Computed example of a mutant assay.
Amino acid sequence: MFFETLREPDFDFAISAMAARGRMVVMAGRDARPEFPVGPFYVKGCSLHGFMLLKASAEEQQAAADDINRWLSAKQLRPLIDRVMPLSEAAEAHALQEKQTLENQSNLTGKLVLTP
């Protein structure tokens, strides 16, 4: 499963990383209009699903959280983490994320994790 969370998805990269019959969940980029490599996608027999947290019920959110926690525990899901920062640096983390998301000016290669 490939979770696409970029504001401007890179479908060429995502599809190349997916296994045959893989599932892609698009979770960001509602205004994006990227090119979609139809050939490589359908040849692998992949499926594409949209997920918007704000439209999910509490039960759907709980089921998704349960799935993610189970996959993490079983080491079936390996999140890409750019860096771990203390909560006291939350403002800096937010600025880094904003630069990446809104200005595409950061070199983040994964998620930012804040620790207490």
Rank of each mutant, 00 (worst) to 15 (best):
M27V: 05
E59Q: 08
V26L: 10
E98P: 06
I68S: 08
D12H: 07
L108G: 00
R30T: 13
K99H: 11
P86W: 01
L112Q: 00
A20I: 10
A91I: 10
G50F: 04
E98G: 10
V43P: 08
D66I: 09
V38N: 04
Q100M: 04
S16V: 04
F11T: 02
L72K: 06
M24D: 03
L108D: 03
A17F: 07
Q105T: 01
Q97H: 14
L6C: 11
A28Q: 00
W71C: 03
A90G: 06
E59N: 12
E103Y: 13
S57V: 07
V26K: 04
S16A: 11
S47W: 05
A74S: 05
E92G: 08
G39A: 15
G22L: 02
P116D: 07
L72I: 00
M24H: 03
L48F: 03
P79A: 08
P116R: 10
K44Y: 02
G39P: 09
Q61F: 07
A17K: 11
P116A: 05
Q61C: 12
N107A: 13
E60W: 10
D66C: 11
A17T: 10
S57A: 03
D67N: 12
S88H: 05
E8H: 10
L114T: 03
P79H: 07
S73Q: 13
P40M: 04
T109Q: 03
V26T: 08
R83N: 01
F51E: 07
A91Q: 10
L54H: 15
F51W: 09
K44H: 00
L114A: 08
M27H: 01
S106P: 01
V25S: 08
